Amino acid sequence: MSGNGNAAATAEENSPKMRVIRVGTRKSQLARIQTDSVVATLKASYPGLQFEIIAMSTTGDKILDTALSKIGEKSLFTKELEHALEKNEVDLVVHSLKDLPTVLPPGFTIGAICKRENPHDAVVFHPKFVGKTLETLPEKSVVGTSSLRRAAQLQRKFPHLEFRSIRGNLNTRLRKLDEQQEFSAIILATAGLQRMGWHNRVGQILHPEECMYAVGQGALGVEVRAKDQDILDLVGVLHDPETLLRCIAERAFLRHLEGGCSVPVAVHTAMKDGQLYLTGGVWSLDGSDSIQETMQATIHVPAQHEDGPEDDPQLVGITARNIPRGPQLAAQNLGISLANLLLSKGAKNILDVARQLNDAH
């Protein structure tokens, strides 16, 4: 009898209710805020589980004197976190989706994509230029951005401005803007500013005609071990179906173009009346040469937790077992079709030249 009692006690200790789920994140304040929001949602869904947040620095956090596009290494903000995932030191990792490459290392998958916040870019102005827009900034004003995508589009749109690289986390960039006289304004992701509670610093939100956004911008991705079915089931509740389908289309477009950090590629997606609209573009580094096109596809946005595919093969690095396969494939095909259209119009040449120029500098 006593033996059975011990077995029952052991089973209770090993039951999922007692389990601590370890969540990996970057150390920056924004990353911690984003991770806290994901953990809060998981806690609400699984009140019996405990969650421990483990923060670590990544290569991208450490190399702050070089433009991201020049470092010449993929997975700048993800490699150390993936290493911890691989060694079973954490069970899942919360990322900004735009930091996750469209091809993940073997053994990993994006197990959830959370509801997207505003994906557009924002302009934050130096205190002396508050009330201005990019259009009304004085001639030769210097605007800071760490992104080739932003610089290429904005140089084309605002030729009277000069664009220079600015690195560091959000706090560091804002301090550089406010305390030094080098920059009249800087460009940042609206979602990051909003998550930090800095709505009052948003001086201008850039519309798609001015600057399309990065693939996955404004959404959070939760990376897990691809074979860890328990954790895949656990994080599945975080999937937002519309965000998922938009981001599958965007990531398929980028992957098929073979774009990345070192080339200016941008997108804009919208879901309306059962249609998914995808606009994508590529630019030369100075913005003088560009190709942009829009395509659409009829896609039914499923309700969360309709029964999805059981075999769960990944699409552009994403596993969404609780979302039907048909809409996911339709979104992926839309991204591939748009990429093929741009490639047929000469996108590869623009991107190759951009890559060579970026590598040469």
Rank of each mutant, 00 (worst) to 15 (best):
G274Y: 01
L85V: 10
G281V: 10
G274V: 12
K128I: 12
L338M: 12
G346K: 01
S344C: 09
R225I: 05
A249M: 01
E82Q: 06
H268I: 03
L245I: 12
L351T: 13
R175T: 08
M212L: 14
F51Q: 06
C247S: 10
G107K: 07
V23S: 01
R26E: 01
H95Q: 11
R325P: 14
S37H: 12
Q296I: 07
F129L: 12
L341P: 04
K74P: 06
V103W: 15
A84W: 06
S284D: 05
R164E: 14
D307T: 06
T109L: 05
Q332D: 07
G131R: 10
A67Q: 08
G308R: 07
L42C: 08
D65E: 15
L42I: 10
E306M: 04
V123A: 11
S75F: 01
K62A: 11
H83S: 12
K132M: 14
I113S: 03
E135I: 11
V90Y: 05
Q229E: 13
V353C: 01
W283E: 01
P159M: 08
H120W: 13
Y213A: 01
H239F: 01
K74E: 01
S45V: 09
E80H: 07
G144V: 05
R22E: 10
F77R: 01
R156N: 12
E86H: 13
Q34S: 10
G287Q: 01
E82S: 10
S337G: 11
S262W: 01
G259R: 06
A40M: 14
A31N: 01
S69P: 12
E162Q: 07
L278M: 06
R175A: 11
V215K: 01
D286S: 08
L97Y: 01
S344G: 14
A226P: 07
V235S: 01
E117I: 15
R325G: 13
V143S: 03
F125V: 09
E210A: 07
L343T: 09
L137D: 03
D91N: 12
T102M: 08
E52L: 05
V39A: 13
L193V: 05
L285F: 14
I71L: 12
P327C: 01
A339G: 15
D311S: 05
D178H: 12
E310I: 01
Q229I: 05
G48L: 13
C114P: 10
D240T: 06
G72L: 07
L161V: 07
H207T: 13
T59H: 10
R225V: 07
A152M: 10
L161K: 09
K132E: 12
R225A: 03
S165C: 12
M56Y: 01
V94Y: 03
H83I: 08
L188T: 11
P106I: 10
T78Y: 06
G259P: 01
N200T: 13
P208A: 07
L134R: 03
R201A: 01
L97E: 04
D65C: 06
G335D: 06
